[in-house]
Structures are given as C-alpha cells and as structure tokens.
C-alpha cells in the first residue's frame, strides 16, 4: 500500500516567491503546506525555511509568528529542516546585512560578497558547488555540480560547511548540523540536481 506523502511546511515570511519551493516539494513526492502558523508548522514532518528578502525583516517575521521556536524545536528533536538562500543565513548567528541576531543553529555570520572586475554582486547564476564533507543529502550528486545562486551575502567556510563555491572568495554553499541542512543556492531553481536534493528532504521527512 502506498504511504501518504509526508507534509513539508514551507515557512511563509510574507516576502514573495514560495511557489517554486512548493512545486519542487510536490515533484519530489511530498505535500507542501505554506504557513505562517506555528501550530501548523509544528505538525509537519519537515520544514523548509525559504529565502527571499532581507535579513532583519526575515528574522522579524519568524519571531512575530513564533516560527523561530518551531525551527529550534525541530533542530532539537532531530527532525529535518532545510534552509534555502536567506534561510541559510537566518539559521546562522547573524549577518552584516542587518543588526538582528540570527537563529544561531549554525555557527558563523553572513558577510557581504565583494564585487571586483568580472566578479559581480549579486552573485547571480549557475556556479559550481564542491562537496567538502559527505552528507546523505548529497549522496546522489556528483562534485562539483552546478546550482543556481542569487545572493549578495554569504557565510564563510566554517565547521558546519559541507560544500564550497568560489565567487571572488570561497564561501559555504551548503551547511549542516544535526538534522538542519541549508543551501546558499536555490535547489528549487536548479533543475534536476536541485530536485534530487528535495527528494532527499522528502525521504528524511518520511522517516521523521
């Protein structure tokens, strides 16, 4: 008998495009629920903390809805959390883009990327991601693989980094700690490689 698709809650910070995330979750075999309600999020099998917008409004939206506590609870209970782009930065300790503290579930701070000559900021487009540590979410993917990035801030390589990308400087393309996994790139906008990552998330959700 086929099992029901696991519910993946997409945390809604009110700043825009969540459709690509929900479409990717559906294609990967999950059921996507967009919500700003901490009770709904609490019941999900996995969380996606997406990322469009600026750091301070992003953190403020999580705090005002109580979703910050849900993310922390998932991390403590070892249930899957995927942070994407700004979501990765929100999971860290802070960012030069704002003054608010981050969620602090990953070590380090986001710094502004520096434009120089042909290195443009925002870093926009398909860049190579090389795995620096093995992680189950990356098992299906070769190294390096191209993913789609669009961001102006990035977290330097640190103890939680599992993948690196070079754009003027080397930064953390993906980070992981416990059940928290985060990418600076947008897997939902990265074609087949990105979809492979969402499949791993849905699989983890099924087991959680």
């Amino acid at each position: 008998m086929p099992t029901a698709p696991p519910v993946v809650a997409v945390l809604d910070g009110g700043t825009g495009n969540l459709r690509s995330v929900t479409a990717a979750i559906r294609r990967a075999g999950g059921r996507a629920v967009v919500t700003a309600d901490h009770r709904v999020a609490r019941e999900a099998a996995a969380l996606v903390l997406p990322g469009v917008g600026a750091f301070d409004p992003g953190i403020a939206a999580l705090r005002s809805t109580g979703l910050d506590r849900v993310v922390r609870a998932f991390a403590e209970e070892g249930r899957p959390v995927l942070g994407v782009c700004l979501g990765l930065q929100l999971l860290h300790e802070g960012s030069d883009e704002g003054t608010s503290p981050g969620l602090g579930l990953l070590p380090g701070r986001a710094r502004r990327l520096r434009a120089a000559g042909s290195v443009k900021v925002p870093h926009m487009g398909w860049n190579q991601v090389a795995w620096t540590t093995s992680h189950p979410f990356l098992a299906d993917l070769g190294s390096p693989t191209r993913f789609y990035f669009v961001h102006s801030y990035a977290v330097p390589m640190g103890p939680a980094a599992v993948a690196s990308t070079d754009h003027g400087a080397v930064f953390a393309a993906a980070c992981a700690r416990g059940s928290v996994f985060a990418t600076q790139f947008h897997p939902e906008r990265s074609g087949a490689a990105g979809l492979a990552l969402y499949r791993r998330l849905v699989e983890a959700a099924r087991c959680s």
């Binding site: 700043t15 469009v52 917008g53 600026a54 409004p57 925002p122 669009v150 102006s152």
Partner: peptide
C-alpha cells in the same frame, strides 16, 4: 529592494 532584496 528593501522589502524583497536587491537580488530579485
């Protein structure tokens, strides 16, 4: 840009 970020 302040609301959605310069990247979009």
């Amino acid at each position: 840009a302040a609301r959605f970020g310069v990247q979009c």
